[in-house]
Design a protein around this nucleic acid. Structure first.
Lengths: 264, 264
DNA sequence: TAGTTAATGTATCAAATTAATACAATAAGC
DNA sequence: GCTTATTGTATTAATTTGATACATTAACTA
């Protein structure tokens, strides 16, 4: 698949009027590594503030397509699970950390990064629709876009402060993930092709934010019939090695559609 | 509570520029009567087409507040459960039943109901955020607004055809209700203060779209500890009379917050 | 007035599921 | 060969579920 070349400041300035005014997209991209939930954040080039990868909707483009494009352009990620979860329309959302926003716009102006037309356009009230993505973290090489210096996976546990209401957006995404758990293919989307049952358990624990009982979790998951067993994983540790598993895609997807129905 | 006087065409024309362009609100209002789920629809004054009650967001107003206001202005309903469920941003959404929309705008123009500025404003692409409301149907006297001739409860089962993508919006709202069932206070919002357990069961059946077993449903619901038992309901029928129940608000709300966790 | 009818509230019981715990198997260190 | 820590599975009691049965009862019927 050909990767879209990221926009530049110049390109954005040339075509900012092809975007719908007043509506943006923000993506909460979840990954999973070292038995922790992570999200992908961008650090802005000019200030050191962190934010969610986001963008705008073209006038001739579906909102869902815009979300796919934004994800690709700003992080290089493609063909991942992506779904809308909430639209944030509070008047106050741009007023949270207002000084930072003012500073950013001032910087744009003084550095002549954007002309005044663009700056006025950006000053408008924006309503943003949040999408969440689930990604196999190891398969991705996210790269910062033209506005960002860094593009990094951060643990949900110790996230940096985010611009505007992006912190709230992350919280809402996590809540959505927790409540819709049985209807979202978290396992197949977040784990590598082969994984141990403990990996899967820790993933559920990270999302549900509670400890689960090992042997019962194992029994229940195996009974679902969604796992194929493979060779053992030899880590070099001084104890019994766990089996590796992969998902039976067909059964898994059928089950997710109806909602996996068991209590953790 | 004072009821907001509905807008008129003239008022809308005067102040249409105080609304955010390109973003609307649509409300799917659920009620429950005669053991059936109903939704509240408006029939347009000029054409006979049906639509969801909807409106726009003021530039100085939170989107959630706009939804509350729209619900009040267009139906007279107030203080009901109201929650956002999805935002519809397809390019095609205004193209569904496109002739009807064209007809409507043409009618606006020819009848000089709106000036050309308003008509151009309305012609724009709109992204709409869907809210769903849960209402005790008997406590409400919904009244049509300035654009509508009728405001009627219609059975979900035999809904008329709706304008644009409003049919899809209703389907999505119903799906949301079904999936989030354990986290939404459907009972307390949709039923009258006192009700029988069979009423509650039929409500669950209407939302889940499947039959439930009577005696098991009764056992499970009673065990939750959310019901207060009252006097019997004498209907005049030739058999044992059922008890009336009401919700223990405190316990019910606690349970809903964590998600009622049992299988129906 | 006694019998009939049909829905309701509750009980029962087998089957399934869950929680808690135990224990044998095993990869590698010593 | 003994130790250690983790894994896979078994066991058991407690709980929940599904299916069915049955006594109760409001009003009708004969």
């Amino acid at each position: 698949m050909s990767k879209k070349i990221p926009e530049s400041e110049e390109e954005f300035e040339r075509q900012f009027e092809t975007y719908l005014p007043g509506h943006s997209i923000d993506c909460v991209i979840f990954g999973y590594k070292d038995q922790e939930l992570k999200i992908l954040l961008l650090q802005w080039k000019y200030q050191k503030t962190w934010s969610l990868p986001g963008g705008f909707i073209r006038k001739d483009e579906d909102m869902d397509s815009a979300a796919i494009r934004v994800l690709l352009e700003r992080t290089g990620l493609q063909s991942v699970f992506l779904s809308q979860f909430h639209t944030f329309g509070s008047l106050q959302r741009s007023q949270i950390n207002a000084e930072e926003n003012a500073k950013r716009l001032k910087f744009f102006k003084e550095s002549k990064i954007y002309n005044s037309k663009v700056i006025n356009w950006l000053k408008n009230r924006f309503i943003t629709t949040g999408y969440f993505a689930l990604v196999d973290l190891d398969k991705t090489k996210p790269e910062p876009d033209f506005l960002s210096e860094k593009c990094e996976w951060k643990s949900l546990k110790d996230m940096p402060r985010l611009i505007m209401d992006h912190g709230d957006i992350v919280l809402k995404a996590h809540e959505h993930l927790r409540i819709q758990l049985n209807y979202i293919p978290i396992g197949m989307s977040l784990l590598p092709q082969k994984f141990t049952i403990l990996d899967l358990q820790k993933l559920y624990e990270a999302i549900l934010q509670k400890k689960l009982e090992r042997s019962n979790f194992q029994r229940k998951v195996l009974k679902l019939g969604i796992l194929n067993r493979h060779e053992k994983l030899m880590t070099g540790a001084a104890h019994k090695a766990p089996y590796l598993y992969s998902f039976n895609k067909k059964v898994y997807e059928t089950l997710i559609k109806e909602g996996i129905g068991f209590s953790f």
